[in-house]
Design a protein around this nucleic acid. Sequence first.
DNA 1: CGGTACGTTGAAAGGTGTCAACGCTTGTGG
DNA 2: CCACAAGCGTTGACACCTTTCAACGTACCG
Lengths: 230, 230
Amino acid sequence: MLAAALNPTSVSRNKCVAAPNSTAYHFGGITGHIGLIASDFTYTKEEEIFGERESANYVYQVISGAVRTYKLLPDGRRQIAAFHLPGDVFGLESRSTHRLTAEAIVDTTVLLVKRSSLEEAAGVDLSVARKLWTITSGELKHAEDHMLLLGQKSAMEKVATFLLEMDGRLAVAGMMALPMCRRDIADYLGLTLETVSRALSQLQAKGVLGLSGARQIELRNRRHLCNINA
Amino acid sequence: MLAAALNPTSVSRNKCVAAPNSTAYHFGGITGHIGLIASDFTYTKEEEIFGERESANYVYQVISGAVRTYKLLPDGRRQIAAFHLPGDVFGLESRSTHRLTAEAIVDTTVLLVKRSSLEEAAGVDLSVARKLWTITSGELKHAEDHMLLLGQKSAMEKVATFLLEMDGRLAVAGMMALPMCRRDIADYLGLTLETVSRALSQLQAKGVLGLSGARQIELRNRRHLCNINA
DNA sequence: CGGTACGTTGAAAGGTGTCAACGCTTGTGG
DNA sequence: CCACAAGCGTTGACACCTTTCAACGTACCG
């Protein structure tokens, strides 16, 4: 089954995917260059996809749904490193074990590719090797930006940054439907869920955003959020 | 000038290095596989090596000294992403621009390699491509660990973690000589310099560490630090 | 129709930041 | 050789932002 492996433009179903030319998603510019076996898999809400320190046998791309990756302290404190939304790749490791735990936030379908076959492909096709590096580099960029947020920004600035990030990633017609709960947001931003809630309420009171249901958010004043953002 | 480029076992001087087999440092397992042009360069204390958003023309490896890489907010708040000590590679980007600013903390000598020649080498030798990915992946791991610290740990926990990290990286005979000032440490840990100073004083009072000069630290009870560390 | 999970809001506590003073060390120039 | 300035670090007092603890409301679901 040659082809298209990592390029779920059309949401592919069941094992072995051969996708046509892609526009929307990019697991690489890999498509077409190399034959790769890929499978679909669906995880239910709250289900663990892989655990910290587990052997990294697969690389994942979100087709639909949302995933959180995080680290825990022994006493249960949790730092969410990233939210992975449709199109995003996660679980890619250059070493053999995962450094984070990944869980489905809602029912989530992923495309998965064996790490070994990716490694093999990278050994033959330089553009694949390059793509793997680029993906990891993109994650590093996100992590660096997020360190700035975690270490230096105030609660309101953190929430504003979060809203703008999510707006850019999942806004449809000016509205966004957050897949994650307040606790997830809090653990992503290094805050408590109460502080997140208060910040959102405050922004709503100012008319910067509109809430229709706690997770349905409309940004009404992006300019204001950018200013807060610092 | 074939050879050894990225492997400054013997501290090489001036332009064009041909190092013998290496044991101590690893800029790759690159040595010997590929011809690469490398130069030494020395920056003075506080000198900028490259700036955020600058074009990334070189990749660096610390030979001696210490480097900080950081991001700034518009109002001057600074988040130091990492300290780079002898042996560490920094400034490696898969895209064409730097995402961080790099400065020498003390007088620092680096080995530098042209990005273009590394790219070229990666195009010929797969192990080089692999190594570049591995380096970036290592930075990502550090960033993920640091996000956990920044988002979840208390001031004392942050300082304890910092001490253990530095102990592992630059302890000689049980002592370490920190190259960075309190403000650098604070900006690395997402604290103020006063809070860092208080935490260190507290640890000294408990006998967990000994200070002979503010930057000469001896850890007397690593066990205790590990416990704090959570 | 309860039960549970999720979200909001309030009040109080506390950890860390802010502001300020002081001490120590280093380097420099008279 | 000493005086002085400047940079760095420590310590104290206080303020405030965020957390903690708690109550309450709401939506969803068996």
